[in-house]
């Protein structure tokens, strides 16, 4: 019996490959595929009352979603907040990576470690520390009032969209740094010199050579930030107030307080589809734009 398996194992490379993959494969099936399938099927049921669920298949929950103005508004708001977070992160992280990749000669690793140092603390702790900074009696407001610049605290800083954008940007910046740095680091400096040699200014060389060549990193950073921030609910729950609430907070409520699991599942499915759709569009548009650029 063992001999038989040994033979199969030695003969077929695919058996080897699958047996190497199997731990990850089993985990993904249990932790991803099964829950996804459950969520999809629940989105097609109906919540009758607090305790009962009607298990006949219907697409009514998806229609419900688009008939509820609040849910559509929250979806758009989630996308808008994530979009802002992604954009601000890219604009701030790109120059830093550019600097490390091209101008830091020694100890590049040290720079990267120092930049990612704040991310060694927990996500929740960082969210709470922003609360301390942005709050009505927080660092910013109290110092501005003590300095006599303000009479009343700035209210838009806390429990608002602004607070969510600031906190999420800070929380995810480290994840943008790495793909950007890796793609910039790979660019041979002689490409940049060749661009200058061929008559282009520094600015033109950046847009026609450096940026297009760093595109894989840019797209990577966009995906890495956009996808998780759309679904984030901790930051909006702690810092968003009513203004900064996102769709994920509502989904959480459907599974909890409101107890409408089918509508919650439908909302989650819609959000997931939208995110996939947007990431495909964003990466394609970015590629097209760069092609036109060069």
């Amino acid at each position: 019996m063992i001999g038989f398996w040994k033979k199969i194992y030695a003969k077929h490379d695919s058996v080897k490959a699958y047996s190497l993959l199997s731990p990850a494969l089993i985990l993904i099936i249990l932790a991803m595929v099964v829950p996804m399938a459950l969520m999809l099927s629940f989105s097609m049921f109906t919540q009758v009352n607090m305790m009962e669920i009607d298990y006949t298949f219907t697409f009514q929950r998806y229609i419900d979603f688009f008939q509820k103005n609040l849910l559509v508004t929250l979806l758009i708001k989630s996308i808008k907040i994530s979009f802002l977070v992604t954009l601000i992160t890219l604009i701030t992280a790109y120059p830093v990576c550019y600097y490390i990749a091209f101008y830091v000669k020694k100890n590049k690793m040290l720079w990267l470690v120092l930049l990612t140092l704040p991310f060694w603390t927990s996500y929740l702790l960082r969210v709470f520390s922003w609360k301390i900074i942005l709050g009505t009696k927080g660092v910013i407001n109290s110092s501005l009032i003590n300095a006599g610049i303000l009479n009343e605290p700035l209210t838009f800083l806390m429990y608002s969209e602004t607070a969510v954008v600031i906190t999420l940007t800070h929380a995810w910046a480290a994840f943008a740094l790495l793909p950007l740095y890796v793609s910039l680091e790979k660019i041979d400096f002689s490409f940049i010199e060749a661009g200058r040699d061929l008559g282009l200014s520094r600015f033109e060389v950046f847009w026609k050579i450096t940026f297009p060549l760093s595109l894989p990193g840019v797209i990577g950073a966009i995906l890495i930030i956009f996808i998780p921030t759309v679904g984030d609910y901790v930051t909006p729950a702690l810092l968003g107030g009513t203004d900064g609430r996102m769709l994920s907070n509502m989904i959480q409520a459907y599974f909890g307080k409101i107890n409408n699991i089918p509508l919650g599942a439908a909302s989650a499915t819609i959000m997931l589809t939208t995110v996939v759709f947007i990431t495909i569009i964003v990466s394609n548009v970015t590629k097209k734009l760069t092609q036109r650029l060069t």
């Binding site: 002689s190 060749a194 040699d197 050579i209 060549l213």
Partner: peptide, 11 residues
């Protein structure tokens, strides 16, 4: 200039 590694733009 003709560069040592040629520096042909890969994109």
């Amino acid at each position: 200039m003709v560069f040592q590694n040629y520096a042909i733009f890969p994109h």
